[in-house]
């Protein structure tokens, strides 16, 4: 019953986002600001994670695929495909669910408990539309680009780790990267990221928007936002993989 209540309220919340904006130019401005905040603000952590993810992936692949039957450039193939298909879109988005999701939930939660959202509503502004819609649109537009960068950086990290440790030289790594590359994988990853971006922003905004109480409840909303975003990302990852890759 409790779950049904939240699903119903989430749907009503989503419907409320798409009422006619009060002033479209203000929304455009907000979208640009949110793109900078969500995209540029998450670049550092995303790149850092990707470098190490790619490096670890390469070293572990070497460790697991030591066989005279497996060509050494297969390590690069494994690294490339794992980074593009799963690690960059899913793992980085899980990290972003923590960073961006908790930030959105706590920001909206604080605005709710300090009556800032009430102040917007009294002015006649569609508060959910003004506060949430730009975040959702911004994330859906900017995160695919961010993830594309993390793909390059992740593969670069793998190449670097292979070269530095001498496990796979640059020539073999490059050969592996170009071997049997399917561009659909990038499309698939981008579709996943757009869906994940929607989940992170909308679920976190929902949690923050309906916060009741004080500082403690803002913290709880933030935690719930991260937990539910992560669970839904993993679930959607499975659904999309089943639908689009098989």
């Amino acid at each position: 019953m409790h779950t049904l209540f939240h699903i119903g309220r989430y749907c009503i919340f989503m419907k409320g986002l798409f009422l006619k904006p009060e002033k479209i130019s203000v929304y455009y401005k907000q979208i640009k600001l949110e793109m900078i905040d969500i995209g540029y603000g998450s670049l550092g952590i995303s790149v850092l994670i990707s470098v190490f993810m790619g490096a670890v992936l390469t070293i572990q692949s070497v460790h697991n695929l030591v066989s005279p039957l497996v060509p050494i450039y297969a390590i690069a193939i494994v690294t490339r495909d794992a980074v593009i298909l799963e690690f960059s879109p899913t793992v980085v988005c899980l990290v972003l669910a923590g960073k961006v999701g908790s930030s959105i939930a706590s920001q909206l939660g604080t605005m709710r408990v300090t009556e800032q959202i009430d102040a917007l509503e009294i002015m006649g502004i569609n508060s959910s539309g003004y506060l949430v819609l730009p975040k959702i649109i911004a994330a859906m537009l900017i995160l695919p680009f961010l993830i594309l960068i993390t793909m390059f950086v992740g593969i670069g990290g793998g190449w670097m780790a292979g070269s530095i440790t001498g496990l796979i030289n640059s020539h073999e790594f490059r050969r592996g990267l170009l071997s049997g590359f399917d561009t659909y994988n990038i499309t698939f990853a981008s579709i996943k990221v757009v869906m994940f971006a929607f989940i992170i922003t909308s679920v976190s905004a929902y949690q923050g928007f309906y916060t009741e109480g004080g500082a403690l409840e803002v913290g709880q909303s933030s935690t719930r936002a991260v937990v539910w975003s992560s669970v839904l990302i993993l679930f959607m990852d499975y659904v999309l993989t089943q639908l689009l890759l098989i």
């Binding site: 604080t110 605005m111 300090t114 009556e115 800032q116 009430d118 102040a119 509503e121 009294i122 002015m123 006649g124």
Partner: peptide
């Protein structure tokens, strides 16, 4: 419909409710 009336309303909240 309420939007029109709301634009005629000003409200001062207990804590100010200024946008941080």
């Amino acid at each position: 419909e309420r939007k029109h009336i709301r634009q005629e309303i000003g409200m001062v909240f207990q804590g100010g409710a200024l946008f941080d």
